[in-house]
Design a protein around this nucleic acid. Sequence first.
DNA 1: ACAACCTACAACCATTTAGTTGTACGTTAG
DNA 2: CTAACGTACAACTAAATGGTTGTAGGTTGT
Lengths: 120, 120
Amino acid sequence: MSDSEDRADAMFHALSDRTRRDILRRVLAGEQSISRLAASYPMSFAAVQKHVAVLERAGLVTKRRSGREQLASGDVEAVRSVTSMLDELEAIWRGRIDRIDVLLTETPGDPSPTPQPQED
Amino acid sequence: MSDSEDRADAMFHALSDRTRRDILRRVLAGEQSISRLAASYPMSFAAVQKHVAVLERAGLVTKRRSGREQLASGDVEAVRSVTSMLDELEAIWRGRIDRIDVLLTETPGDPSPTPQPQED
DNA sequence: ACAACCTACAACCATTTAGTTGTACGTTAG
DNA sequence: CTAACGTACAACTAAATGGTTGTAGGTTGT
């Protein structure tokens, strides 16, 4: 149903942790094994593994197996899709949105099925 | 210490909830009272109040009192600052960062104070 | 004055999150 | 073969999150 909103939730959530942002920077700069990444942070291997999993679920990172290693790399297209969500917010501010009602969802539960103009 | 990282944490976290993103869209389109906002969502007034507070702490929204109403409006500059964080990630991917070691923080705990080249 | 309205905030609850440790399993090097 | 390495995953804990209800205080209109 709200598929793109689910994706947005996952992406922003993935980016809301500094360790994950740091991991993303590294794997955007170049493929890195999980253990290589884990060595960079003052936490357990499993913790870093989980962070990578969060990034992967959000689509910001992809994994590729090479022998016994798992190589992670960042997906710049996913980063761009987040940027465009923010650009959309900026466009709303500019008032340059054609059909603003499409973006201003009455969201979960939708108490106003009929799109009332909602003026004062 | 990691002041800008704290801010980034707060901003991305604020954006990671669809209700908050929707609220942000509305207040970017124009000032809205909290109760007006609350009427739009299938949750209690207090819940919406908390969401606005999260957005406010992140600096994405500012509040102004007008009589008995509290008017919230979106700060587009804050949105732009998030965009530039993402642009920075994209720049890393392009490999066009001058001093990448500044961005690739050894983060919390910093186990490698001496910036080793870290080649294979 | 008084009722209705808007807001603030505390207390509580269920779920998720970020971290830990421990175990298990495939892979690589001697 | 065996030891060391890289990973996966389950189970657990503490803290944060998103929601609720209830109470209280300032503002507005009649």
